[in-house]
Design a protein around this nucleic acid. Structure first.
Length: 288
DNA sequence: ACCCAGGGTCGTC
DNA sequence: GACGACCCTGGG
């Protein structure tokens, strides 16, 4: 493993807190100096910001600069996206200003599938803890700066875990779902390469829904965070809440129809619903 | 101590 | 298509 440092200057839309605390990822932790450290594929990465300067440090065997470019979605123009969204109405204006430094990370498909199956009816601290435990037990060890990190396990590695092993790691009722999905992928009943080549979001969603533990919400998160489909709208309790408060005004928020919400988002946010969702989610959750 | 919610999904009716 | 159940943890 090589020790690497890479710097970026004057990168638009890049706020560490916004990126790592907006709920899209579970494996990044804040350091005492305000930087964040995480594991991406086989690399440990630490990101810090000094004014206009963004410094990536870490250890890697691969093309570090390219890994960074892809993972942090540096080729997407977020200023343009924010301009479009802000022009829709005052709420989008406010939420894009609030989360102005958000970027949608390009996460690994396999890791994303398992992580969001675990996220079902769960809270973020516990989700993070479970994923960390899984990585410790089935991932590869990496040492960097006198600290120990673990990669997220491969399909083959995680397939060695029994349902009981998974339960023991704190997954609760999600154990069987993770087990079944892992084996569907291991046995090639679900082809991760094929889905990455598809171009229709609805067709991709249909495929994802075949996995155990993947319903409409989790499928849309996978589409948004790993398959880079911005034309999806994951509906969870927070988004339902914010959309109802702003646009629908139903007295009973739980009764808000999902189809109606999806259609409203499609019409309002025109192909970048996923981004709108992320700004609204972060805004509402942090200011609630 | 007790209750509730947490980035939902599944099986059953 | 509605409804309750589901494991576990943290916060009121």
């Amino acid at each position: 493993m090589k020790n690497i440092e890479y710097k970026l200057f004057e990168q638009e839309s890049f706020n560490l807190t916004h990126i790592f605390e907006c709920g899209q990822c579970f494996r990044w932790n804040k350091e005492n100096d305000g930087s964040y450290t995480g594991v991406v594929k086989n690399s440990v990465i630490n990101v810090q910001k000094n004014g206009d300067e963004i410094i990536f440090k870490g250890t890697s065997n691969e093309d570090f600069e390219n890994t960074i470019r892809e993972y942090f979605d540096l080729d997407t123009n977020y200023d343009e996206i924010k301009r479009k969204l802000a022009s829709i109405d005052k709420y989008l204006k406010e939420s894009t200003e609030f989360g102005n430094g958000i970027r949608i990370l390009h996460q690994d498909l396999w890791e994303c599938i398992i992580s969001f199956i675990i996220s079902a009816n769960n809270n973020i601290p516990r989700i993070k803890k479970i994923i960390e435990t899984i990585s410790k037990n089935y991932g590869e060890k990496i040492e960097w700066n006198n600290k120990v990190y673990y990669t997220f396990p491969t399909v083959e590695a995680l397939a060695k875990a029994s349902v009981e092993d998974l339960r023991a790691m704190g997954l609760g009722f999600r154990d069987i779902r993770v087990y079944n999905t892992t084996h569907l992928i291991l046995d090639k009943k679900f082809d991760m390469e094929r889905i990455q080549k598809m171009d229709d979001s609805n067709q991709m969603r249909e495929e994802l829904l075949k996995l155990d533990g993947v319903g409409p919400k989790v499928a849309d998160c996978i589409l948004l965070f790993a398959l880079k489909r911005f034309d999806v709208f994951p509906i969870d309790v927070w988004v339902r809440r914010v959309m109802n408060d702003l646009y629908i005004h139903n007295e009973n928020e739980e009764k808000v129809n999902k189809k109606e919400l999806t259609k409203l988002a499609e019409e309002k946010f025109l192909g970048i619903q996923g981004l709108a969702q992320q700004y609204l989610f972060y805004w509402k959750r942090e200011t609630a």
